[in-house]
């Protein structure tokens, strides 16, 4: 086999391994790329249709829809471009929706400027430390005091996800270089 054929074969094997990993992790939907408003609408509508077909409870459907919207809009509005030319484009990142017998998990990953890591991390730690009543108070405080950012974010997304799901938000920051980190967030909706 020449070198080109070896490469193709490796790639085909990679696709199969990738497929198996997705099945093992019970991935329902996975995407990497720019998160536009159209993408957000398409993914939520597709997921709604699937949940209706599988007769998921109304309550779970609403929560999954809600968390998907907030997570996708978070990437679209807050992912930072590594290339300054992409500054005015919608943010890009990876989106993964998994479903098993007991829960849905919604995971997003995107690049952020490194200097934001501490602030986002401590804000998430704070949210995770609060109970239902504490989250309610924080939500009320933020909706009153917060201002809509120029990208249309209200700073309420994480608080609302924690409040609506009743579960902790798991997160991880992986350093990319001196200026950027990769942020991964997972929200869980109990079925």
């Amino acid at each position: 086999m020449d070198e080109n054929n070896v490469e193709i074969k490796e790639f085909l094997e990679f696709v199969y391994t990738f497929y198996k990993s997705m099945k093992d992790a019970k991935v329902e939907l996975v995407y990497e790329g720019e998160i536009t408003h159209q993408i957000t609408k398409a993914f939520t509508s597709l997921t709604e249709t699937n949940m209706q077909l599988t007769e998921e409870s109304n309550n779970t459907q609403k929560k999954v829809f809600h968390v998907m919207i907030e997570c996708l809009q978070n990437i679209g509005k807050h992912a930072d471009p590594m290339n300054p030319e992409d500054f005015n484009k919608d943010g890009r990142g990876v989106f993964v929706l998994c479903k098993n017998e007991t829960e849905y998990t919604i995971t997003t990953g995107n690049i952020i400027q490194k200097h934001k890591v501490d602030e986002i991390g401590s804000s998430l730690d704070n949210i995770n430390s609060l109970d239902k009543e504490g989250l309610k108070q924080l939500y009320k405080h933020q909706i009153k005091e917060g201002r809509l950012s120029n990208k249309g974010g209200a700073g309420l997304g994480f608080i609302d996800i924690a409040k609506k799901t009743g579960n902790k938000i798991h997160f991880h920051f992986a350093p990319i270089n001196d200026d950027f980190s990769f942020m991964v967030l997972t929200s869980t909706i109990t079925r």
Binding site: F65, I69, Q73, I143, G152, G153, A154, L156, G157
Partner: peptide, 12 residues
């Protein structure tokens, strides 16, 4: 029947 968090600020 549904509003996202950005809308919740405008509703307020």
């Amino acid at each position: 029947v549904y509003f996202n968090t950005a809308s919740s600020k405008m509703i307020l």
